[in-house]
Design a protein around this nucleic acid. Structure first.
Length: 476
RNA sequence: CGGGAUGUAGCCUAGUGGCUAGGGCGCCUGCUUUGGGAGCAGGAGAUCGGAGGUUCAAAUCCUCUCAUCCCGACCA
């Protein structure tokens, strides 16, 4: 059979599309730019949700749900916010057969509706902090869409918090940024740069935007999560104030932070190979698949042996026993590899004789023989090993594709020939940032929080004193 | 929103004006198989993306339109 997945070398974009469709993660919808998330893709999202949701709750947040439809006037209340989002709004003009008095927008994000409610809920410092998260869908009318990475409608979570002091809101912003970092690195196995966004790249309406940036296999950057310090911008726009202990009225300080189904795209482009999806065990909906191998005369023996193993594992792992009689083992191997299952167990008559099982790992393709009586322990270790290996690979990849330069010609050379992250000095001016973008298509992905010792004290463009060490890259 | 490509069965595809649109995968039935995408036999499935036009005759030519992908400009 012909290969279903276009090799990365041949066409990286097509490879990505092939992975998504062949692993049955998503499919195109009848509406342009929208996608259907299929059970395999949705199971991934549910897994991410459950881990993140736990982390949000551990940091004191509660879930709520705000409406999909927002009065058009709300979005216009914050100047930068409206400017940023106007081009990508979907607007509802009719309802129940009649034209609406005021058009409704479908939320592109929920700051405005949430802050209109916070106005009602916050009067006193005793009402603060208010720590709310919501899991929702949002719609942004995009010119160019790509499965998971940028679709017209997508799923995400958005945290919206209100605080009595600037300091506390800033701490919250960073706290959640680090929650994202932990989640993406420890669970998704993706190494990220943690940093602040430049003025031109920050969220419309934010005072400061922070980001975790990952590097995909094609050496392009992907913003994997953002956390914003909103200052008092929305509090002022929606007149949300509180009385402090002294009885004075003050505006509330705000944050918002989100990750989306785009993370699934990041996951695919970080770990997967030409055989299909590769999933880190901690995020894999199915950790183990057992494939029995038999001839007619050995079938019952093998099935019983395999079923026995399945029963001993099923309470400890997420495991599937693929006893489908229609497909041959080779077909199953390919299929489960395509779907990214981290560990495959093969059991045939030869193994039963030796009281062993064959264990194949998805990340390296390596097969090992494991004694039946130590199976559980070995598999547990192996899953951990795969998880660690994927993260190490991701970290090494990012490191190996991060360059440092103080010379603009070299900068341009690296961006166009190699890709990856480039660390360089930046004076902080929008002009220099713009020039780089025009020359090379690279943007500032982050101003890393971890200040590394560098000797790049000059701006890569203008040669003036550098205020920042910036990470540049072409991005999604 | 510009440039390019593509639309023929669930998927891939042959078919540059001429008879009943051909093949592969998948699907259904039966038998044989099963350690890296099995074999044989039989079977179902297509108003050729849509609309209009040219012609004795259109999947094929023309016009319009819709959709998707790829590449750019804008964005989680």
């Amino acid at each position: 059979m012909a290969d279903k997945i276009t090799p990365r070398e041949t066409n990286y974009s097509q490879w990505y599309v092939d992975i998504v469709t062949n692993a049955k993660l998503a499919d195109y919808s009848p509406v342009k730019g929208c996608m259907v998330i299929r059970p395999n893709g949705y199971a991934l999202w549910e897994k991410m949700q459950s881990i993140l949701d736990r982390m949000f709750k551990e940091t004191g947040h509660r879930n709520a749900y705000f409406p999909l439809l927002i009065p058009e006037s709300f979005i216009k209340k914050e100047a930068e916010h409206v400017e940023g989002f106007s081009p990508e709004l979907a607007v509802v003009t009719h309802g129940g057969g009649d034209e609406l008095d005021e058009p409704l927008i479908i939320r592109p994000t929920s700051e405005t509706i949430i802050w209109s409610m916070y106005k009602k809920w916050i009067q006193s410092y005793r009402d603060l902090p208010l720590l709310i998260n919501q899991w929702a869908n949002v719609v942004r009318w995009e010119k160019r869409t790509r499965l998971f990475l940028r679709t017209t409608e997508f799923l995400w979570q958005e945290g919206h918090t209100a605080h009595a002091t600037e300091q506390e809101a800033k701490e919250e912003t960073l706290k959640m940024l680090f929650v994202y970092q932990k989640f993406v690195e420890e669970y998704m196995g993706i190494s990220v740069i943690v940093g602040e966004k430049s003025e031109s790249e920050k969220f419309a309406g934010a005072v400061k935007t922070y980001t975790i940036e990952a590097l995909m296999q094609d050496k392009k950057a992907l913003q994997a999560g953002t956390s914003h310090f909103l200052g008092q911008n929305f509090a002022k726009a929606f007149d949300v104030s509180f009385q402090n202990r002294k009885g004075d009225l003050e505006y509330v300080w705000a944050t918002s932070w989100g990750v989306s189904t785009r993370l699934i795209g990041a996951l695919i482009m970080s770990h997967s190979d030409d055989k299909g999806l590769v999933l880190p065990p901690k995020i894999a909906p199915v950790e183990i698949v057992i494939v029995p191998i038999y001839k007619n005369n050995t079938k019952s023996t093998v099935i019983i042996y395999a079923e026995n193993l399945y029963n001993s594992l099923k309470d400890k792992f997420s495991v599937i026993f693929d006893d489908d009689d229609q497909n041959k083992p080779g077909w199953k191997f390919s299929e489960w590899e395509m779907q990214g299952v981290p560990v495959r167990i093969e059991i045939g008559p030869r193994d039963i004789k030796k009281e062993q099982i064959v264990v194949a790992r998805r990340d390296t393709g390596e097969k090992i023989n494991v004694k039946r009586n130590s199976a559980e322990e070995k598999i547990r270790t192996l899953l951990e090993d795969i998880q660690n290996n994927l993260f190490r690979k991701s970290a090494r990849f990012r490191q190996e594709n991060t360059y440092q330069t103080a010379d603009y010609n070299e900068f341009k050379e690296v961006i166009s020939q190699k890709g990856g992250f480039i660390q360089a000095g930046w004076c902080g001016s929008a002009e220099c940032e713009k020039k780089i973008k025009e020359d090379t298509k690279a943007t500032i992905r982050a101003l890393p929080l971890a200040k590394e010792e560098t000797d790049r004290r000059k701006c890569i463009i203008c040669g003036r004193e550098a205020k920042y060490t910036a990470i540049f890259a072409k991005s999604y």
